[in-house]
């Protein structure tokens, strides 16, 4: 679906990405991982033409540079890391912007109003935004705001979803919700996800494939299992990654049998489900 060949990005004298290649096929969830400054977010920005680059980025075999912005947006959606909205738009107004790419041209085309409205309602239902539709986005919490933009990108109905550390600043409950929703979304055939993540556990849990970047170069790519090997990670992160992860996890082990914990988990699960039609994703 998406093919990136020999992608290089420079800011002045600084080389951010050097000859990076990767691809993602339908049904796959590609994780772009690597330490800070590896060029992960820049790679995503290049796909949406946000930075100048050399090399080739092909979507369904066509160069991204030849695809018009609106047509690109009908195929590729992006969920960014933070959002700062300047004015008090309502939740619904922000979600509605997701249909921008489907609006008719100045002289040509007809507005498909019913499809637009249906997509907006569906997206807001799925993300649990319907009760907040008239609220100003300036009054929302970080987690709610992220869900507004998730609803926007669902309303956009893309086939390829790009995520730039979508849950970086969010509470764990939102992390769980967002990743749960995207997992469901990916179940429909013909779709794919590329995401930049910092958290290696998330990459391992949700990724089918992965690319490991270090200082702008591609260190490893392939299935998530191959790429997230101890040898690769230890080299790039310059530490014993799996030992550290195990040490962190072991803090929780003694509590696993505690019945109170099981109750808490069940409660959290209930909270995590918004709409009853999650399969409609």
């Amino acid at each position: 679906m998406l093919e990136v060949k020999n992608l290089s990005v420079r800011y002045g004298d600084l080389s951010i990405l050097k000859n990076v290649s990767f691809s993602v096929q339908e049904g796959q969830w590609l994780m772009i991982i690597g330490p800070n400054g590896a060029g992960k977010s820049t790679a995503l920005n290049a796909v949406t033409q946000g930075v100048g680059y050399t090399g080739e980025i092909l979507l369904e075999g066509r160069s991204m540079k030849q695809i018009k912005p609106a047509e690109r947006a009908r195929m590729v959606g992006v969920l960014a890391q933070n959002h700062f909205v300047g004015y008090s738009f309502t939740v619904e107004e922000v979600v509605r912007l997701g249909r921008y790419a489907y609006s008719p041209g100045f002289l040509s085309g007809r507005r498909r109003e019913r499809e637009d409205e249906a997509a907006i309602e569906r997206a807001m239902d799925l993300t649990g935004m319907t009760p907040l539709r008239g609220k100003s986005v300036l009054t929302l919490s970080g987690g709610e705001l992220q869900r507004v933009f998730l609803a926007q990108v669902f309303a956009q109905e893309p086939r390829l979803l790009l995520l730039d550390e979508p849950t970086n600043h969010l509470d764990l409950i939102y992390q769980k919700q967002v990743f749960g929703l995207i997992t469901e979304w990916l179940k429909t055939p013909g779709r794919a996800v590329v995401s930049v993540v910092h958290d290696l556990s998330l990459a391992k849990a949700f990724g089918t494939h992965a690319v490991l970047l270090d200082e702008g170069s591609c260190v490893a790519r392939g299935t998530a299992k191959e790429v997230l090997s101890a040898a690769n990670l230890n080299k790039v992160y310059r530490m014993d990654v799996s030992a550290w992860m195990r040490q962190m996890l072991s803090q929780w082990e003694e509590q696993a049998d505690d019945p109170a914990v099981a109750d808490g988990l069940a409660a959290a699960d209930e909270f995590a489900v918004f709409g009853k039609e999650e399969s409609a994703l």
Binding site: Q49, A70, R72, A73, R74, G77, A80, Y100, A101, Q152
Partner: peptide, 9 residues
């Protein structure tokens, strides 16, 4: 950035 993502030229 959001404008670019939703397909604005």
């Amino acid at each position: 950035d959001n404008a670019r993502h939703i397909g604005v030229n």
